[in-house]
């Protein structure tokens, strides 16, 4: 069914989604006002095109037999994508960080739908709870009042939007081709298939066990035990390094002031 639909049905739709998304991103990115004939209408036009791109993307997914069955997935992925786009195009960095928190909520929802409970909660706790607050602290320390000039212009928005559109077109095309017919060269031996075919014990038969949290823990502290230790060491090094760099900067500042 998917193979029958894909070459004719969804390719123009996906292309339209990518193209209008690219143009919308270009229109919405911060640029000097009055730089072209669109003037202040570019925001409204960009929003309209962005909504059209999202609708086309959702419609293409529905034609593929996906979205629509999974209404929850559709909603949370919409939240994630809208939040991510607003993070990129919002002028004020503080609002940008808040939009990023919304995108994180959407991503956590996507992870929950995909059955990764621990990661969904960890994304909220670690990202929205810790990393984002750190970003906001630095913003409060360093942000001048009002909008700085460098927040109201951006580097080459047209070229960057085109680059993003090309990359997105390549990715969606390859994902679509992957789902149409997985080529013989690139089919990864699936663990699920292996479990289904191989005569193994009852412990390995539950590919998605009733308690995925415990299985993730077994995976982390079994196969990746050394990596967990290395990650702990990395956290320690980052902590010490951050403090060392800050205090060395303060010492340098003090010596410079003392010398002058």
């Amino acid at each position: 069914m998917i193979a029958a639909l894909l070459p004719t049905g969804t390719t123009p739709l996906l292309a339209a989604a990518v193209a209008s998304g690219t143009v919308s991103l270009w229109l919405l990115l911060p640029q000097a006002p009055g730089s072209d004939w669109l003037g202040h209408r570019r925001g409204a036009l960009g929003l309209v095109l962005g909504v059209a791109a999202l609708a086309a993307l959702a419609w293409a997914g529905r034609r593929l037999g996906g979205l629509g069955d999974e209404a929850v997935f559709q909603i949370v992925s919409l939240v994630a994508i809208v939040g991510g786009a607003a993070t990129v195009v919002t002028r004020s960095p503080v609002y940008s960080a808040i939009w990023f928190a919304l995108a994180l909520a959407g991503v956590a929802g996507v992870l929950l739908v995909l059955g990764a409970q621990f990661l969904g909660v960890a994304t909220i706790v670690v990202y929205a709870g810790a990393i984002l607050v750190m970003f906001l602290f630095v913003l409060m320390l360093a942000q001048p009042s009002g909008l700085a000039p460098y927040d109201r212009v951006s580097n080459e928005p047209l070229l960057a939007a085109i680059a993003g559109g090309v990359l997105l077109a390549l990715l969606t095309t390859s994902i679509g081709r992957l789902s149409a017919d997985p080529p013989a060269c690139c089919t990864i031996p699936s663990r699920a298939d292996a479990v289904a075919t191989a005569p193994v014990g009852p412990a390995a038969a539950d590919a998605l066990a009733a308690d995925p949290l415990a299985r993730l823990g077994r995976e982390l502290f079994g196969r990746h035990l050394l990596a967990v230790e290395a990650a702990g060491l990395l956290l320690l090094v980052a902590l010490v390094g951050a403090i060392a760099v800050v205090s060395r900067g303060e010492v340098a500042e003090a010596t410079r002031k003392g010398a002058s």
Binding site: I2, L25, L29, P30, L57, G61, L64, G65, G66, L67, D69, E70, F73, S77, A80, I81, G84, A85, T87, V88, A103, V107, V110, V113, L114, S154, N155, E156, P157, L159, A160, A161, A163, G164, G165, L167, L168, L171, T172, I175, G176, L178, S179
Partner: peptide, 24 residues
């Protein structure tokens, strides 16, 4: 289909971040 959609969402998020880091 869920894998296809999730991969698409991941690709869109990645591209948005890429455009942001290139332009902002």
């Amino acid at each position: 289909a869920l894998l296809h959609d999730a991969l698409t969402v991941g690709a869109v998020l990645f591209v948005l971040g890429l455009v942001g880091i290139l332009t902002r």
